[in-house]
């Protein structure tokens, strides 16, 4: 029971990482192929990526939630 929880959480980590890597690839493609005016897309993707890390990896909701 206890360890199954752990496995679920570890798998969630993989999913987040896969999403972030996919985002990074898109970012890279956008950044290398579009020569002008790419910054709105790049900043949007950066914000989404940062949010994912803050939310899933850094557990920012702990600050305003009572207990897990």
């Amino acid at each position: 029971m206890h360890s199954r929880h752990l496995e679920v959480k570890l798998r969630l980590g993989f999913k987040v990482f896969a999403t972030l890597t996919a985002l990074k690839i898109i970012e890279y493609v956008v950044g290398t192929s579009i020569n002008r005016g790419a910054w709105p897309y790049l900043s949007m993707m950066a914000v989404v990526g940062a949010w994912a890390i803050l939310h899933y990896f850094m557990h920012i909701p702990q600050l305003w939630r009572r207990k897990e």
């Binding site: 970012e27 790419a38 910054w39 790049l42 950066a46 890390i53 803050l54 850094m58």
Partner: peptide, 22 residues
């Protein structure tokens, strides 16, 4: 670990700032 993730978040912004915008 939180500090480590923060360093990663910083890089998420630094990478496009230095390498991608043009």
């Amino acid at each position: 670990v939180k500090y480590w993730h923060f360093v990663d978040v910083a890089w998420v912004f630094i990478f496009p700032t230095l390498y991608l915008v043009s």
